[in-house]
Amino acid sequence: MAYTTTPGDVEMALEERTVVLVEKKSSTGQIWKVTGALLIVALCIGGVLLFAWYWNGRPEMKMQSGQTEALTKKDTSEKPDHHDALRRIGIKAKAAIHLEGSYDEDSESNQLEWRNGQGQAFAQGGFKLENNQIIIPQKGLFFVYSQVSFRVPCSDGDERRGAGKGLTPLSHRIWRYTDSIGSKVSLMNAVRSACQSTPQEDSNHSGQGWYNAIYLGAVFNLNKGDKLWTETNQLSALETEEGKTFFGVFAL
């Protein structure tokens, strides 16, 4: 705002002079208005460009983020952690049991005894050996197997009378008891006759006996708590050296 004084008559008194207010336009205010408008337009354009860049760059950002995370996991996995390795092995390990057989003629039980913790025998995954029986740890599919080896002394008959070798029957069976049935059932069994050989084989094995093995193996759907055991005849002819007579189960 500027103040101006109107020309007055010299003869008039000073009190009678009229004061008129005249508005004077400022160039500085117009400059600030133009500058503000340009700033607003620039901000709008910048926001649009920033949004477009962000939207187009999201897949790359995700990819880089994923790669970084993968590299981090890789670096972590490469660090030696024996406890973690043992834990992973324990999780992946299947339940299994493998037993070695032994027989003592002087034992009162008069049966083939299965032993854990000797030779190649082991048990893991919840399997137990109780009262010479394998206890199944959980319900599922299992492969059950067993082998018994024999050395049977064959007696010569009276060849002049036409009598041949005396046949000796060998048998091996795996029994199962389950609460759902309430009684024992036969899972597998095999019967074989010993001392079946030609005269030439008899001469080659004279005084050594007749060797043979019975092997049983198949897949069964068993329940938790089922009991498995074996029954074998001709115990005195059993070969119980390591790897010849065994009994086992493993989960599938």
Rank of each mutant, 00 (worst) to 15 (best):
37 A>S: 14
41 V>P: 05
192 R>I: 00
12 M>I: 10
173 R>V: 00
47 G>C: 10
92 K>E: 00
107 S>L: 14
213 A>R: 05
225 G>T: 09
57 G>C: 04
95 A>T: 13
189 N>K: 07
73 K>T: 07
170 L>G: 02
164 G>V: 06
20 V>H: 06
214 I>Y: 01
81 D>T: 07
86 L>E: 14
220 F>K: 01
99 L>H: 01
212 N>Y: 10
221 N>R: 11
29 G>T: 15
185 V>T: 12
154 C>D: 07
70 A>E: 05
157 G>T: 09
196 Q>P: 04
125 G>H: 00
235 L>T: 09
163 A>M: 09
6 T>Q: 15
155 S>I: 15
114 W>F: 10
168 T>M: 09
88 R>V: 07
17 R>W: 09
91 I>P: 04
122 F>I: 05
31 I>D: 11
63 M>G: 12
156 D>K: 09
58 R>H: 11
103 Y>S: 12
41 V>K: 05
31 I>E: 14
97 I>P: 02
41 V>C: 14
220 F>W: 03
69 E>P: 06
50 L>I: 11
98 H>W: 15
76 T>E: 08
202 D>P: 04
90 G>T: 10
183 S>V: 10
83 H>R: 13
179 D>I: 09
176 R>D: 14
147 Q>D: 03
224 K>G: 04
105 E>C: 07
80 P>C: 02
1 M>H: 12
206 S>T: 15
194 A>R: 00
169 P>K: 01
173 R>H: 02
104 D>V: 06
127 F>N: 02
139 K>R: 13
136 I>L: 06
221 N>A: 09
110 N>C: 09
222 L>Q: 01
129 L>M: 07
199 P>K: 01
185 V>S: 12
244 K>D: 08
44 C>F: 08
115 R>S: 06
135 I>K: 03
242 E>N: 08
194 A>S: 07
60 E>W: 05
208 Q>L: 08
26 S>H: 12
235 L>Y: 06
74 K>D: 12
145 Y>I: 01
109 S>A: 05
201 E>Y: 13
232 T>S: 03
8 G>H: 12
90 G>W: 02
164 G>I: 07
157 G>W: 03
214 I>L: 02
153 P>R: 04
228 L>S: 03
186 S>N: 13
215 Y>A: 08
15 E>G: 11
24 K>A: 01
187 L>P: 12
113 E>D: 12
135 I>N: 04
2 A>C: 10
247 F>T: 00
152 V>A: 11
240 T>S: 06
235 L>F: 01
226 D>F: 04
250 F>E: 15
204 N>P: 06
177 Y>H: 05
23 E>P: 13
46 G>L: 10
137 P>F: 01
24 K>P: 00
221 N>E: 15
108 E>M: 09
100 E>A: 03
159 E>A: 14
195 C>R: 04
75 D>R: 10
7 P>M: 08
